[in-house]
Design a protein around this nucleic acid. Structure first.
Lengths: 203, 203, 203, 203
DNA sequence: GTGTAAACGAGACGGTACGTCGCGTCTTAAG
DNA sequence: CTTAAGACGCGACGTACCGTCTCGTTTACAC
């Protein structure tokens, strides 16, 4: 059998050092916070983690993947997400949206989230991974709350829930991304009100 | 007399070579299309443009600025923008949104626009420039059309027009950015309908 | 009980795998021939020999030692060496020197012998080993023949035999090493004649 | 005209920085003395010289070439070499040989000369360069002295002078290289005596 | 016209980081 | 307990670009 140019010799995951994996992800996370995405280098991650560069190259295909993983590891602590359901959709959404606004306004979230965004915009593969691992589960939880509202007659029964989420979140997301306006609790409220009017059940 | 630390010796714009400027912008544009934003290097731009590296560093502060300029030069052909105004807001907006959707779906726009987006997300300064030079004028034209609609009673008189634009465009923009759904003419129509319902004049 | 710094844990030679040892030496020899001394790596030897790297490190202290051993294994096939003794010293030496010249001129000997030389020049320890295992026995055989000649009155009785060997062989060795001249049978003859004149018995 | 795979873009020697060249050669020389040939790395030379690695790779093809050059630069200070000629060949040669022995015994010469030797043995190209730039001129000076001796009837008129030099120097060189014996003034004297007997004029 | 100062192309420079290779050590599983 | 296999921390490799710094050579304005 021909071997061709000899395939890249893939490593055996069973022997992977969990210690090193964690050290790399930690170092990546901290460096991104300190320096911002594009001033982080693989050499710096390796040095900070006390790890050989090869160990990074062995397990991740690119700097982006490491950093993506490091951020993902933060959120994916496995807990299943659940939105508040007091029966009052508008109040519940305002609670959630105000929290989201606060999160985006927190400077500590700035660097890693921008890093994540850059990754996802620039790399279709990471975008898919992002949707699967991060936004997917969260969106599903949100849609669950919306379905509950539909059953309660607070939202049009035939509303496209993906679209509802877009109308609710995309303006906020865009404003943050382009820095085109302030992220205030009032803004959060406004988005909820507008969305509910847009998808109000037919009277 | 001593010169001290001597200020950075800024060049005289009057003597700037238009030939070189164009060559650089062209080269940048083409390289971004061919390789994508982050595989483009200043060295490559200079080589492709047949220009010394110093000529680039003399007139632009960073790679981002060159590429930003090169994309900006495309759009800013100076024509003042004007949206259609047939008197039917919904129809006019659908026309415009369908065109926008088509533009985003065009693969030829993909590389430069993603490059631009990455710039703007990552660099607050470029974000400001972007709002001033690109999105600003376009948004102003859109808002002009919306004001006309307000006068015609087709839109709530007290609607925050910036917010209207966000609700109209941000979902589309986000869908494109995260590749989270198809960009179809129907989607464009839906966004218009929802937005108009959200900001309908109080009956 | 504490082990303290614990000595380097020397392996038990009785359990050594002869199979592995041979495979390593063979692989080393062949790789030196193919690639030359300094492009051979321990990793390559281990891979070619189908042996774990640790097995090499367990039994040899350095790459040099492995290669040295591999070349040594070739020659040291245990036979005791004996020079011809027809009674005519000049004729006998010419026979031997012509053979030596031919050996050095053989391209198949080139790579390993240069490798050996580099080792020996660079590493005093290997130099000692070389003298003990390789050149020593051969030189002793040569000196035996010279003593026979001294008894026969063909060589000064008080000649320093080590010096005789140096005068006889060093020029040849240097010429080969620096590639500073051709190695011909005539050259071999000339060296013998000169040496015999230099150490002729006092008339 | 086809460009092929694009040739390696050779640099323009006119623009070469003499400052950097000297700094590299100095650094190389000192590092070889401190660490010995094979523990010197190009990175270390560049760092010590305060020079970018690329500057070394731009002008030298290999570590060996740098170090070779650095040693060569020492000797090649252009002075024409001249051996003493008192009319007494034996005395003159003993003077020279004793000096040579002393030089080889000097530990300060040890590291660079072994480095040079390793280079020359391992690389035919450097061997040629070595003969041309270093050993050539020196040997020519020695042969000049020998010719003078031939005219004075102190050496066989038909002696092959290259061979005379080999018989004179190669034993010393080999003894140093293999560390097979002490390098003493007496040894130097002995070599001269033996050589002169071997190439004595026919009585 | 001519002189002179600028901007220009070219590209060498000191650096940083890249992604790869090999070192010598350490760990695991099989015999 | 040795072995084959191979991951590990480490450090050097040779390359690509960075942004700065000369080099001559245009080029265009002031004389």
């Amino acid at each position: 059998m021909l071997r061709g140019v000899s395939s890249p010799r893939k490593p055996n995951p069973a022997r992977r050092s969990e210690r090193s994996r964690q050290a790399v992800l930690d170092a990546a996370r901290r460096l991104v916070s300190e320096l911002g995405y594009d001033k982080v280098s693989i050499e710096a991650i390796a040095a900070r983690a006390g790890v050989g560069k090869q160990t990074i190259y062995r397990w991740w295909p690119s700097k982006g993947a490491v950093i993506f993983d490091s951020i993902l590891a933060l959120s994916a602590d496995g807990e299943s997400i659940r939105l508040p359901d007091t029966g009052d959709l508008e109040a519940d959404l305002k609670t959630v949206m105000r929290a989201t606004v606060a999160e985006f306004a927190d400077p500590a979230f700035e660097a890693p989230v921008r890093a994540l965004t850059l990754q996802v915009v620039g790399d279709p593969g990471l975008a898919a991974l992002y949707r699967e691992k991060l936004s997917g589960p969260v969106d599903e939880a949100k849609k669950e709350r919306l379905r509950s509202a539909q059953r309660a007659g607070q939202l049009a029964a035939d509303a496209d829930l993906d679209l509802v989420l877009e109308v609710l979140y995309a303006p906020l997301y865009q404003r943050w991304q382009l820095r085109s306006g302030a992220l205030t609790p009032e803004y959060a409220d406004r988005l909820v009100e507008i969305t509910l009017r847009a998808f109000a059940p037919c009277a």
